[in-house]
Amino acid sequence: MAMHNSKDMIKQGGIWVFILAELVFFSIAGHYWSVSNQAFMDPGNMLLLLKQSAPIGIIALGMTIIMINGNIDLSVGAIFALSAVVLLDSLSWPFMVALGDWALPLAWGFALLTGVTLGAINGLIVWKTGIDAFIVTLASMLGFRGLVFMYNGEQPTSNLNWTLVDFAEAQVLGLHTASWFLIGTVVVLWFVTTRTNHGRNAYAIGNNREAAVNAGIRVGPHFMWNFMLIGFLAALSAVVFYSESGSVNPNDGMLYELWAITAVVLGGTKLAGGYGSIIGTLGGVIAIQLLRKGLGHIGADTQTVNLVIGLILIAVLFLDRQLTRKGKEELKI
């Protein structure tokens, strides 16, 4: 048993070791190649990093429980965009304008409701038709994105509200609002996955669906809850981000689903389901953001960043496979 646990520790802890390596590397490399004079490990820089991780981070945390459950959600980027449109557009509705600042929580509510509803649509289809979540959300990704374009054409939807901006830019204990939302999501989902009935059943279903059914677990409703949860989180992510920026392009949030999945997988969650952790995903999110920032720090351009992230993803998963495979006989390919 000791061996089993230590292996788990290595696997779960691996991402944090990787983050540490990144920090050391960029601090040293930055010393020689930095385009600015600022130190990389500057506290202000690190706090900013957390804030920048938030939009994809919050979605990735939701994706973790979806993937533990044995599903996947490709529509999160589109849900993100549509929720943002609802948030900003609703602020210009006549009755909302009349409400003054009281319209703000209501607009948040509309946006979050949009996310939950879209998630519920995904969940309901997966539950009732039995079609694979990959296909269902691939279709809804296209469909939801279509709705975004139908709303305002190619035009951006804008509405800069200074009260919202102030809220989004506020700092408590040095952390920005977005960072607090990220941390809050981590805490809540950590409890949900490790300590609740729903979380435990999600693991069981992802690991062995048939055994879960035989144990009297209702698989469909759990799917449904998780899709609603990730819909909510995609909307939450949008709400936090667009409160500050005040303008959404119809193409915003594209590829977010893939970045989220990348972070989840980097964090050690299995694509096949049944295994993974929220803390690991947080590590994955931070690792990616650190890599982007670090490479920027030493003067690499965006294309290089993407190439490096791609390479590292393969390297990390290969390493993980080697660790997992140790002592087991696996099919040689």
């Binding site: 693991y203 690991n207 062995n208 048939e210 055994a211 879960a212 035989n214 049944g274 295994y275």
Partner: peptide
């Protein structure tokens, strides 16, 4: 295949 969730521990 039908009775156990192999990735989970004994108690769970």
């Amino acid at each position: 295949d039908q009775g156990l969730v192999l990735g989970m521990n004994c108690k769970d």
